[in-house]
């Protein structure tokens, strides 16, 4: 039997090279012959979150302080804060019909909503079922330098993996834009989706250790958001230096890269998402425009 598929816990060659392993981790200890995988071996098709599965990865590895605070304190407060007597859902601006009787409208797409190019969502009242919650943080790192030298992307991925404890996925260019040296299929950065304990640990590091040390940081712009409760802001390479994983090993990270953070919530509106994030410790500021 081939012994190659036994889990090795590392993927760099035996002659230990200095470097960063870019191979995706494999979480199985049992040698599997992929050819034999089929209906005959149902035990190999156990879902990943089952402890019998060879791909099982433990999740509840320590007490989650941030989630505890959300569950015990914030949830009931947010419910009371958003309680409105006799409230009903406010219907969004929807696509309109062309009228029932026109034969030309039978297979035609609906008319655009009034005054907008896109339909908007309904705004539902907050009930115990849909209390605003932080569902995930996605981090997007666009690496311009990698367009010319693709090896630079390795250090970007290492940086993100160090900060978040999650293996980043590589992002590739989708189109050709020659003046920007953008080539289709070329590496141009990486991204990470954080959930659960990885998310809360990242959030507490950001709120307690990184943001307070950025001198110029005023907060997140009040206008940030995609209108359905997902709020984005960016950090520059100078600001990323304050992450303790980077700060203590600065000589190992000669190139640092800024990234965009998106806080994904199920709040439905930006205003509610802002309330949630404020209560989790992220400040917001109002942008002053057209000052003369």
């Amino acid at each position: 039997m081939s012994r190659l598929s036994i889990r090795s816990f590392s993927s760099s060659p035996i002659a230990s090279k200095v470097g960063y392993s870019t191979v995706q981790p494999v979480h199985h200890l049992i040698p599997i012959k992929k050819q034999t995988l089929g209906k005959r071996f149902p035990e190999l098709n156990i879902p990943k979150d089952d402890i019998r599965s060879p791909q099982y990865k433990p999740k509840d590895v320590y007490q989650d302080r941030v989630n505890e605070y959300y569950q015990n304190v914030l949830k009931s407060d947010l419910l009371l804060h958003y309680y409105e007597h006799d409230s009903e859902a406010v219907t969004g601006n929807k696509a309109r019909s062309w009228g029932e009787f026109s034969p030309y409208a039978v297979y035609r797409r609906d008319r655009k909503p009034k005054g907008l190019s896109r339909a908007t969502r309904d705004i539902k009242p907050v009930t115990p079922r849909n209390i605003p919650e932080l569902t995930g943080i996605s981090i997007n790192l666009y690496n311009k330098a990698a367009l010319e030298e693709s090896w630079i992307n390795i250090s970007a991925r290492l940086q993100l993996a160090q900060i978040t404890n999650v293996k980043p996925k590589v992002v590739y260019n989708k189109s050709n834009v020659l003046p920007w040296k953008v080539r289709q299929g070329k590496e141009c950065g990486c991204k990470v989706e954080l959930e659960g304990r990885d998310m809360t640990r990242f959030l507490s590091t950001l709120v307690e250790l990184v943001l307070p040390r950025i001198r110029t940081f005023k907060g997140i712009k009040d206008s940030s958001g995609d209108k359905s409760g997902n709020i984005t802001f960016g950090l520059s390479p100078e600001e990323i230096k304050f992450f303790p994983e980077i700060e203590n090993f600065q000589e190992l990270f000669p190139n640092l890269f800024g990234f965009h953070l998106t806080f994904k919530t199920n709040a439905g509106t930006d205003e509610r998402a802002r309330t949630l994030l404020t209560s989790l410790g992220l400040p917001f500021y109002k942008e002053v425009k057209n000052v003369q």
């Binding site: 590392s10 760099s12 392993s21 981790p25 433990p58 590895v61 320590y62």
Partner: peptide
Amino acid sequence: YYKYQNELWKRLMWTFPSWFYYR
């Protein structure tokens, strides 16, 4: 439960890249 999960987590962790942190 936390201790059990934590031990399991450590068991499945990758080898510490000492060659990266200690040249």
